[in-house]
């Protein structure tokens, strides 16, 4: 038990060690697809900071993005979210949850040949607006929907 803890502490001791591991990972042929992680965006505490870190600024509200999500989520630990973009030239789709401890939940790069539609399941700490951000031809588009959460998903 103590040993594990020590290892964790040791590992956590240096961000540089982490960078080293990541760099080592990058060198393996199979991981050429590892996208550059925008750590700043993932650490952003609120929606605005996350959007700024993503370089999205103030996205254009769009009806060409369709979000499939429940009105009410009984269990915040598992909230199904589907996002479909009809914006031509969609390059990436991101899911942001305004009131989570960190707003950015996921970002999906959509290569040519892949449909601009993804489904996943997310955790929500409390009732919040959920945003789907789409990047297409260098511009950002967004849609939002409020999802009511009965039991939060971050406490337990």
């Amino acid at each position: 038990m103590d040993q594990t803890r020590r290892n964790v502490l040791k590992a956590g001791g240096g961000a540089s060690l982490f960078a080293l591991l990541a760099a080592a990972g990058m060198l393996q042929p199979g991981t050429a697809l590892a996208a550059d992680r925008n750590q700043k965006a993932f650490e952003a505490k609120n929606l605005k900071d996350a959007l700024d870190a993503l370089g999205a600024g103030s996205p254009i509200n769009s009806n060409d993005i369709v979000m499939t999500a429940p009105e009410i989520a009984e269990n915040g630990a598992v909230v199904p979210i589907g996002a479909v973009s009809k914006v031509p030239g969609t390059e990436s789709i991101a899911i942001l949850i305004a009131k989570n401890p960190t707003a950015l939940a996921a970002s999906f790069d959509i290569p040519a040949g892949t449909e601009p539609a993804v489904s996943t399941r997310v955790k929500m700490a409390e009732t919040s607006e959920v945003h789907v951000l789409v990047k297409a031809q260098g511009k950002y588009y967004m849609t939002k929907k409020e999802i009511k959460v009965t039991i939060g998903g971050c406490g337990g």
Binding site: A106, F108, P111, V118
Partner: peptide, 17 residues
């Protein structure tokens, strides 16, 4: 597909595309 995730993805993650 290439996905970058934060901590808000549910346990035992699901993905469809």
């Amino acid at each position: 597909l290439s996905a970058t995730w934060g901590t808000a993805i549910s346990k035992n993650p699901f993905l469809e595309f």
